[in-house]
């Protein structure tokens, strides 16, 4: 039995000024939005800032949301924009020190890579080294589970470009992992599709 209103109901109520519905909506989507921001900006504190800006942007633009796109897709667009803005603010702050481990993206759990600490450093560096053009589609695909068409909609680029950028972004990550990883402990991969292993992040159903 579904006891909670779906997103559509919450959005419509929020657009009518129902603050309680708006708060439920924000609470429901915060973790998903923050996860995207965290992957893109790479640092916890900055991810929180970016997520907050994304939520504010959602609130301020909610009256413009017309329901043609899924709310998750629409909010991913806002989240990625907020994350990019945060990255640019960080560059301007000129305090891009990477020696604060607490603020680094931590990779835990699902990856059976031989040396976890090495993997953590690797992925921090790898994601940081990826250009935004490649990082965003990779994150939207592999973290959020969006399909190519949805990513194209979020990023406002052609699906073919999405496919190419995802391949190049994954290739770049593979280059870095291949350089430092433990070959003997790497996973074998079989075909059958990519599944997000992050419970906080759910893609659309039509993937």
């Amino acid at each position: 039995m579904q006891t909670l209103a779906d997103d559509g109901e919450l959005i419509r109520a929020a657009q009518r000024g129902d603050m309680a519905s708006l708060e439920i909506l924000l609470d429901r989507h915060h973790d998903r939005i923050r996860a995207v921001c965290a992957k893109v900006v790479g640092r916890g504190a900055d991810a929180d800032d970016a997520a907050q800006m994304a939520l504010i942007s959602i609130v301020k633009n909610l009256d413009k949301y017309d329901g043609r796109a899924q709310f998750t897709t629409w909010s991913y667009r806002i989240a990625t924009n907020a994350a990019i803005d945060e990255l640019r603010r960080r560059k301007r702050r000129d305090s891009d020190s990477l020696d604060d481990d607490e603020n680094h993206l931590q990779v835990v759990g699902t990856t059976d890579i031989g040396n976890a600490s090495t993997a953590k450093i690797v992925i921090d560096d790898a994601l940081d080294q990826l250009d935004e053009d490649f990082k965003l589609p990779v994150v939207l695909r592999d973290l959020c589970g969006l399909n190519y068409d949805e990513i194209a909609e979020v990023l406002d680029i052609a699906p073919g470009t999405v496919r190419s950028r995802i391949a190049r972004g994954r290739g770049k990550l593979a280059d870095i992992i291949g350089d430092v990883g433990d070959d003997e402990n790497r996973n074998d991969v079989t075909s059958g599709g990519n599944q997000s292993t992050n419970p906080d992040v759910q893609g659309s159903d039509n993937d």
Binding site: A35, K39, V107, V108, G109, T110, T111, I113, A119, V122, I123, A126, L127, V138, V139, D142, L143, R170, G171, L173, A174, D175, I176, I177, G178, G181, R186, N187, V189, N194, Q195, S196, T197, N198, P199, D200, V201
Partner: peptide
């Protein structure tokens, strides 16, 4: 290697 990267990006 590529799949490992995918898993890491998808990690929480």
């Amino acid at each position: 290697d590529m799949a490992t990267g995918v898993d890491i990006v998808a990690s929480p």
